[in-house]
């Protein structure tokens, strides 16, 4: 960048590029953001676009033949419903559990100890939880022995290699995530607000309905979206704990098989795009509903 502006009096001269950049907030410090941005562009955005284009360049047939193949083969298109049937109930259950527990726990002194325990499944990851559940829920596992011992069941309840195994693993790995998000939203609400409602005559249930719930809905919508998206892309536990050929043949298994068993990257990309699209549809629907609610600071006053 050459700087000999001083030679020419700044009569009607356009400001230099540097000046114009600076006016938009781009100076040397701002450039520090460039490497990270480039990295994400190259390894996240570019593959996504590449995958999208690749999905329209099938190994054989016209541009849309991957998609027509997907939607004409029940073995493939059923995975959308199968996955939905796992992810939606698991997410709803997790939300339903997380709310009351977050409310109960928010003012406890040993809240941190409890949250630490709840964090464990997140860090163990899906593979270990699946392996643990195989042992624990198996026909000879502790859970079935307890059920039989207590007389709640006459024989072992089958909880692995079917729908319930995957469902339970989604609950165990998903609940802590939903809980921690919900807890951070609940504790983010200024305690003076329910106190103010109380002095104005609102009892606990009306404080919840008029104050907490409207303020929480936007956050809960986000938590729901994130949890749903995670659950919808369930993979290792569907293979290990479920019946990957049948009732828990989720969409990510279909994508994986296309890519790494049939080496049809084009089809695999198409399935990945369909998976992303389904997730996007649900997220957009939820977030559109969220617009109806107040969004803004959870505090009060100038805070």
């Amino acid at each position: 960048m050459t700087i000999h502006v001083a030679d020419h009096p700044p009569a009607a001269a356009r400001p230099t590029l540097r000046r114009r950049m600076a006016a938009a907030g781009w100076d040397r410090t701002t450039l520090l953001v460039v490497p990270a941005a480039l990295f994400v562009l190259l390894l996240f955005i570019y593959p996504f676009i590449y995958g999208l284009i690749l999905s329209f360049e099938p190994m054989k047939g016209g541009a849309f033949s991957n998609y027509t193949a997907f939607f004409s083969d029940p073995y493939l298109y059923d995975t959308i419903g199968t996955t939905m049937w796992l992810a939606l109930p698991a997410t709803v259950l997790n939300m339903a559990l997380a709310m009351p527990i977050a409310f109960r726990v928010r003012n406890l002194r040993w809240q941190r100890a409890l949250t630490t325990i709840l964090v464990i499944p997140i860090t163990l990851g899906t593979v270990l939880v699946a392996e643990g559940l195989l042992t624990y829920l198996g026909p000879q596992g502790w859970l079935n022995r307890t059920l039989i011992e207590l007389g709640l069941s006459s024989g072992p309840v089958r909880l692995t290699h079917n729908y319930w195994g995957v469902f339970l693993s989604l609950v165990i790995t998903g609940f802590p995530f939903v809980f921690l998000l919900t807890l951070s939203y609940v504790t983010g609400i200024d305690p003076a607000l329910p106190a103010a409602a109380a002095t104005l005559g609102a009892g606990p249930s009306r404080q919840f309905r008029h104050i907490f719930l409207p303020l929480l809905v936007p956050g809960l919508a986000i938590a729901f979206c994130l949890a749903f998206v995670q659950a919808y892309s369930v993979f290792p536990s569907a293979v290990l704990l479920g019946a990957p050929a049948g009732p828990t043949r989720v969409i990510s298994i279909a994508a994986y098989q296309a890519a790494f068993e049939q080496y049809d990257y084009s089809m695999a990309s198409a399935i990945a795009m369909i998976m992303a699209a389904v997730q996007l549809v649900v997220v957009v629907a939820v977030l559109a509903g969220r617009r109806l609610f107040y969004r803004g600071p959870m505090g009060s006053g100038k805070g």
């Binding site: 994400v40 892309s233 890519a259 998976m275 992303a276």
Partner: peptide
Amino acid sequence: LLFVLPLLVPPITYGIPMATV
């Protein structure tokens, strides 16, 4: 937004196209 996206999209969704690349 660029930095939030990779955290919102689950790994398996973007992982397959990324692995392809």
